[in-house]
Amino acid sequence: IEKFKLLAEKVEEIVAKNARAEIDYSDAPDEFRDPLMDTLMTDPVRLPSGTVMDRSIILRHLLNSPTDPFNRQMLTESMLEPVPELKEQIQAWMREKQSSDH
């Protein structure tokens, strides 16, 4: 029984630690959010139409349809242009958020 109590305490400790580690990014500025999924972008790319999306989301879309989801023009992965300035701004915002939450 004592071992179970210790195990339960350890589990509670881990759960509390994980809860502290989770950071809420739901208040991200609109320009940091993917327009299709409304999630925080981690690897922004510009489509030929000028729309900026997260790379993982547009690549997932391209698996089903080789088109720009906003104007239905033909689109391939090679046409995606990285946006390193925005990526750095997002990373800086995330770092600031992490340091203010801890």
Rank of each mutant, 00 (worst) to 15 (best):
E77N: 10
W93S: 01
R95S: 12
I14L: 13
K3T: 08
I57S: 14
P35V: 08
I23F: 13
T67S: 05
D38E: 03
K17A: 15
K10T: 12
T67I: 02
K97P: 08
S49Y: 15
E9R: 11
K10L: 03
V83R: 03
L36S: 02
N64S: 05
D27G: 13
D34N: 00
S78T: 07
P84A: 13
R20E: 11
R95N: 05
H102S: 07
A19S: 07
N18D: 14
D43V: 02
V45M: 03
E22V: 09
D38H: 03
K10H: 07
R95M: 04
E2A: 06
T76I: 06
R20C: 07
E13N: 02
I23G: 13
S78D: 10
Y25A: 11
K97G: 15
I90A: 05
S26V: 15
A8P: 10
S26L: 15
I14M: 12
L7V: 06
D30Y: 06
E81W: 02
E96S: 09
D27Q: 12
K5Q: 10
V15E: 13
M74N: 04
T51I: 15
E22L: 14
P84L: 13
L6D: 09
E2P: 02
E96D: 10
I90V: 13
S100L: 04
R95I: 09
L6M: 11
N71Y: 00
S26H: 12
S78C: 10
Q98L: 10
K87T: 10
E12T: 09
S99L: 07
L63T: 04
K5A: 14
I23N: 10
E9W: 03
N71F: 01
E88D: 11
D27N: 09
I14T: 08
D30G: 08
V83G: 00
R46K: 15
K3Y: 04
D24L: 02
Y25S: 14
E22T: 10
M53L: 15
A16Q: 03
R20P: 12
V11G: 09
R46T: 05
T42F: 12
Q89P: 02
G50A: 02
P29A: 03
Q91T: 12
M94K: 10
E13S: 11
